[in-house]
Design a protein around this nucleic acid. Structure first.
Lengths: 198, 198
DNA sequence: AATTGTTGCTAACATACGTTAGTTAATTAT
DNA sequence: ATAATTAACTAACGTATGTTAGCAACAATT
């Protein structure tokens, strides 16, 4: 009888399932990925998954909120630091970029598939998202007040920054990748360069 | 018996269906949007749709290639113009932005749901996409050669530009929108500003 | 008015999906 | 070694989905 290999390392069987789910949801999309697909990826029968999880949406829920929490904690941290607005923006962007490089599939799924969450989690997630963008915009506004940042519409700048970073998706799948460090530096050059005054 | 209203204006009944499909696919995603949903939006029974279309994927196919063709024609046009690289980049970006503002749902669906195309259309679409990005990158490379553009990795810059523009999705749904013109100018300021040398 | 093609309807089929029930095997604790 | 718990399996249910067949109502043409 095929058991789920946890590869030791404190991983619960659920963790294994969630990780495989991230990969599958990224590849096919949440709706198009079936529990039978997931079972096959895990190496087990579909029904067996339900010894470890409550439902398919629970998987999406876990993925989305894990990611959201990491970003929320980071922005808490950065807001509290005694540095300039531009430095805060750069730090936040670098965090987004490394998250996208290192936890590609989870971050991607969280970003693209959250629509398929069900209330009350859906509203909850949307609220967190809105709040996060407001806080990011507030940092940019502060930078504009300080004349560090060009006089642009802050919410628009936030959209650009956040969406630009999802472009890393294509980097991941591209055949001739530049290094992760080069990618990060290029992105910062363009994005921070686009905001900075002079 | 409920007929599909074409609102005169040379619209075929299929055009009406494709347009409603764009809206529905945008809202729910291709897989999650059912033909029965679409039928309801059109005001007809699900089976009746098949008097006008061949299949659900044909709808996606039409949407994706309509959009792809528009962008391909535009880049043909811009490449041929005797203007500087930066001007070409700005023109191309402005085209992307207005397309995203005016044909929001089609462009969005084409961008996010093409994965659900089936071969040979899938490969075809992917090839067009790759080619388009290569041509865009080549314009940026030319700009770098001319010292108009910062020394950055051109493919990375393309990713940033293209993904940044999909951020207009959020602008569309936001409650307190700035004007379309202001949006466009802000985006150009940030994006072109991020590329330009000095 | 009769005819012909178009567009709608109802009914249904086959398939795929998420999930549950009940049972057996494997692991852990006593 | 035995008992208890965990995790796998097979089978199946109910529902939703894309699509087809066959027929009725409408519109356009003669």
């Amino acid at each position: 009888m095929a058991r789920i290999k946890t590869d030791d390392k404190n991983l619960s069987r659920k963790d294994v399932i969630v990780t495989k789910a991230a990969s599958l949801f990224r590849e096919k999309g949440f709706k198009a990925a079936s529990m039978r697909d997931l079972a096959e990826a895990v190496g087990v029968e579909a029904a067996s998954l339900y010894n470890h999880i409550k439902s398919k949406t629970e998987l999406l829920h876990d993925l989305c909120f894990n990611v959201a929490n990491r970003f929320m904690h980071k922005i808490d941290e950065i807001e509290a630091e005694p540095i300039s607005a531009i430095e805060k923006i750069e730090k936040l962007l670098r965090f987004h970029i490394t998250e996208m490089i290192e936890h590609y599939e989870e971050v991607y799924v969280s970003d693209r598939e959250w629509k398929h969450l069900e209330d009350p989690y859906l509203s909850n997630f949307q609220n967190q998202r809105r709040l996060y963008r407001k806080r990011f915009a507030a940092i940019i506004e502060a930078g504009i007040g300080q004349k560090e940042v060009k006089e642009i519409d802050a919410p628009t700048a936030v959209l650009i920054m956040l969406h630009a970073i999802t472009g890393i998706e294509s980097w991941h799948r591209s055949t001739q990748k530049i290094s992760a460090e080069a990618l990060e530096d290029n992105m910062i050059t363009i994005l921070v360069g686009g905001l900075t005054n002079r």
